[in-house]
Computed example of a mutant assay.
Amino acid sequence: MKDLFLEGTIETLYMVSLSTIFSLLMGFPLGLLLVLTEKGGIWPKPQFNKVLDGVINVLRSIPFIILMILVFPLSNLIVQKSIGTTATIVPLSIAAAPFVARIMETSIREIDRGVIEMSQSLGSSVGEIIKYILIPEALPSIVSGITLVIINIIGYSAMAGALGGGGLGDIAIRFGLYKSGEKHNMYIALIIIILLVQSVQFIGNRIMFKIDKK
């Protein structure tokens, strides 16, 4: 069982790491667009903003277990399998991306509007405002949000174990919940998951405090 828990931990870290990267790649642009294209934004596209906002709300409303089942065909198309550790990365990324978008949106909205308006008055382009104002000013809040995203993905990865997603969740269910007299395996998996969450929170807090200049 020691080797099994080690393998499960590695699988969980593998799923969480790649899912975080892919969700950030999808969610960051969406969050930026939500702010940039809103009415009164620096690149106003009200109709597009309304559609994008609706799509993100719909995706956030779908429970992860149901979403995982819905994207089985997509997982199979991308990785040639619908269940397993690698296949689970697809629904994990899709589930986390809208959350990343909302975090990005909220973080940017915390920026003093006067700073943005001053940059516009100086003739800064949209790209320059994003690069030199929005991202740097919102970075501490973004880091805090990413920490929450990673913790959520860890939780989602554990739920994925119920559908053959692999990792610690799979071990907790197969060798703890469903195996008579082996409930302690479920508790061991739970303890490892808690330690992972606490580690992520600790590292995220340290990074946030280090870069926060306020």
Rank of each mutant, 00 (worst) to 15 (best):
S144W: 05
I133F: 14
M159N: 14
S157C: 06
P140R: 10
I135L: 14
S141L: 09
S144P: 09
T147L: 05
P140M: 03
G161A: 05
Y156K: 04
S141I: 01
Y132H: 15
S144C: 03
I146G: 02
S144R: 15
I130D: 07
Y132R: 13
L139I: 09
L139Q: 10
I151D: 00
V149K: 01
I133M: 15
M159K: 10
K131S: 15
I129R: 06
I150Y: 04
A158C: 13
L148I: 07
I135Q: 11
G161W: 04
E128R: 08
I153R: 00
S144D: 13
A138P: 05
I135H: 09
L139F: 14
P140Q: 08
I129G: 06
A158N: 13
I150D: 01
V143R: 11
I129N: 08
A160C: 06
P140N: 08
Y156G: 01
I142C: 05
I142N: 08
S141W: 00
G161V: 02
S144N: 15
A160K: 05
K131N: 15
L139D: 08
M159F: 15
I151G: 00
I146E: 02
I130S: 07
A138Q: 02
Y156L: 14
G145D: 00
G155S: 07
G161I: 02
L148T: 09
G155E: 04
S157N: 04
I146S: 03
I142R: 09
K131E: 15
P136R: 08
G161L: 01
A160M: 04
V143A: 06
S141E: 13
A158E: 10
E137W: 10
I154W: 03
I129Y: 05
G161F: 02
L148M: 10
I150T: 10
E128I: 02
L139E: 10
E137K: 12
A160Y: 03
A158L: 10
G145C: 00
M159C: 11
I153G: 00
T147P: 14
I153H: 01
I130Y: 04
E128L: 04
E128K: 11
S144I: 01
S144Q: 13
I153N: 00
T147S: 12
M159E: 14
I142V: 15
T147H: 10
G155Q: 06
S141K: 14
Y156I: 07
N152L: 05
N152M: 09
